[in-house]
Design a protein around this nucleic acid. Structure first.
Lengths: 341, 341
DNA sequence: CGATTTTTGATGTACGTAAATCAAAAATTT
DNA sequence: AAATTTTTGATTTACGTACATCAAAAATCG
């Protein structure tokens, strides 16, 4: 049987009320008594029953998710997963509020963050836009002892408690190696397609990608980035133009969203041009393209895992509890046509 | 505020005692009354507070893990992860017992399973050896309403509630495509190294592997399987012999344990022979070999995830609760040197 | 119809913790 | 040493559910 507050009281030779004062850091306990109780807690190995405590407190965790609007598949999926989490909210004692902000809009994001100050909130998860103003706003929340978790896109040098997302440099490096190896020893050009170089995760992916190509695949050359702004039509025209103007392109790395346009562009030149293609984010479209051979590999981050992990971490942080670090590591999924879920 | 039993009672116009009788399926309620209460439950959307119920019941989940002895890195890691879970046992209201049985020993496994009959157990997780006797023993436990989860290795056509492990056919297929693609259009032989063809997961990996090579890489030929019995020395001598006797070998798929021997054998022929190598299970040795270029890719299943997932599923099954299917899907990790955790 | 059985209600205790109140004891100050 | 302040104890209620007991009401039977 696991020890309870009663056991602490008996072991320390004090009353239940005093134990409660120590455990919940209430005033009115002499230092010597406090130390006596703390020693007893350590000695008998007491661990607070969080479920019982939450019951007694009628604890709920008011959580806020700040996610960008925008209609690309990934953000759509992310919002869907947050919404799924709201359906489990009562069971998990959470109360999830979703705030949507325009993408890449730093002032809007900062305003949303600042509006949370002073509110009774057990945690904030946000898809961070990498800007000093955002960093400062996040740090302000942390100063108010509000747990902050970055989601999908991190905010370096900020005081956020946790990042629930993949290592984007590693993702870019992995994409490079896959492309490089799939291309055997062939020589030629690689086109990189991004949403916007303003987003940190896209920059990091490109950085990792370029590094590995330069270091280990000297016969391949990375062309200047095409910015499709996650817009299928723009993406399609960009890629079609690039392919027709440069016959040396033998590989494509699409590190952002807007893959619908890429796939359409590829299908247009399909039988003639032999292209090796690695893209990010598993969607209905990329899945189909992977299966029919239009693309060769999909790198993915599981939005559902990210959301659930963020919730677990926010709750644990709010309670000052430890997390199972290994469980909260978000993994880069690599999908070939054979291991699709 | 989430509705409670009191709200049901008020809504149905009955007493708390009657609600309790309905909720916990106790006798002494007329059919019409029972239906009235059930209607109220549905109508106000009552969900039992599992934490409070477990508190009231002083519920603990006595769980049993049956894992093979054997000193290969993977099983060692699996036992370690189960042990880690026992450290969290009191917090999670679990009481985990580990039973070790000799590997591939069907009678021993059956005896261990049958010994659990009649015991007060909330769930059994086992690394299944694929035999009709084991299947029958598992089905006997399921008949006694004990949740059974297979771990790492599944038991098809049994009545086990859940499988916490990867899709081994998909793993084999993925290995084949990686090898095939990495080899470009080259022609040659592929050696497959297994522990034992008596284990279902090894058979399935081989099946997937052979299928994809045959279908899609006609210039590659799969040689007869070498059975290393997960023994490093035996494995090393097998691989050295194979490599010296057959100069056409250009790729290796190691689908079992005993990779220490494989790596040693590869290093012995390293600069002269150019080999593309895909192995299973990320260990200290395979990680180092991946980093130094001795091997090209590692397929992995995360034992920690498998154990934690098995625990969640057993608890949920014991309570007749739903699981988040997507969260419990065990993924095949593909590691290149760039995305190691 | 009364007697019997079944169903329902009322009530209390428990799980482990939180939080509040009031009285008693101890420490500190004057 | 008395007055004051601080610390401690004892006790109660609450969270939402489980479970037991006993009495009262309703249904069923002969």
């Amino acid at each position: 049987m696991r020890p309870t507050v009663h056991d602490i009281a008996a072991a320390a030779g004090v009353s239940l009320a005093t134990v409660d004062r120590v455990l919940n850091q209430r005033p009115g306990v002499r230092l010597v008594t406090r130390e006596k109780v703390e020693a007893a807690i350590r000695q008998i190995g007491y661990i607070r029953d969080v479920a019982a405590a939450n019951l007694a407190k009628s604890r709920v965790y008011p959580l806020v998710f700040i996610v960008p609007t925008g209609d690309n598949s990934f953000m759509h999926g992310l919002r869907f997963e947050v919404h799924q989490a709201t359906l489990r909210a009562s069971i998990e004692r959470t109360d999830i509020r979703i705030i949507e902000v325009p993408p890449f809009d730093v002032p809007a994001l900062v305003a949303a963050l600042d509006a949370l100050q002073g509110q009774d909130i057990a945690g904030v998860a946000l898809v961070a836009t990498d800007a000093p103003e955002v960093r400062a706003a996040v740090d302000r929340l942390v100063s108010e002892r509000i747990p902050v978790v970055t989601l999908v896109s991190d905010l370096t040098d900020s005081r956020r408690h946790h990042y629930a997302g993949i290592d984007n440099i590693a993702a870019g490096r992995t994409a490079a190696r896959l492309l490089g190896r799939f291309l055997g020893g062939r020589e030629g050009d690689l086109t990189v397609l991004a949403g916007s170089m303003l987003v940190r995760d896209h920059r990091e992916r490109l950085q990792g990608f370029s590094a590995v190509i330069a270091e280990e695949f000297p016969r391949l050359r990375v062309l200047p980035v095409l910015e499709g702004r996650d817009d299928p039509e723009r993406t399609q025209s960009l890629i079609s133009k690039a392919l027709s103007e440069n016959r040396n392109i033998i590989g494509i790395y699409s590190l952002g969203a807007g893959n619908r346009g890429l796939i359409a562009g590829l299908k247009a030149v399909r039988p003639e041009r032999e292209l090796t293609v690695v893209v990010h984010e598993l969607t209905r479209h990329t899945r189909a393209a992977l299966l029919d051979g239009t693309i060769d590999a999909v790198l993915n981050q599981d939005a559902g895992h990210e959301v659930r992990s963020a919730i677990r971490v926010m709750k644990a942080t709010a309670d000052g509890q430890a997390v199972i670090a290994d469980q909260e590591r978000i993994r880069l999924d690599i999908f070939l046509k054979d291991n699709l879920p």
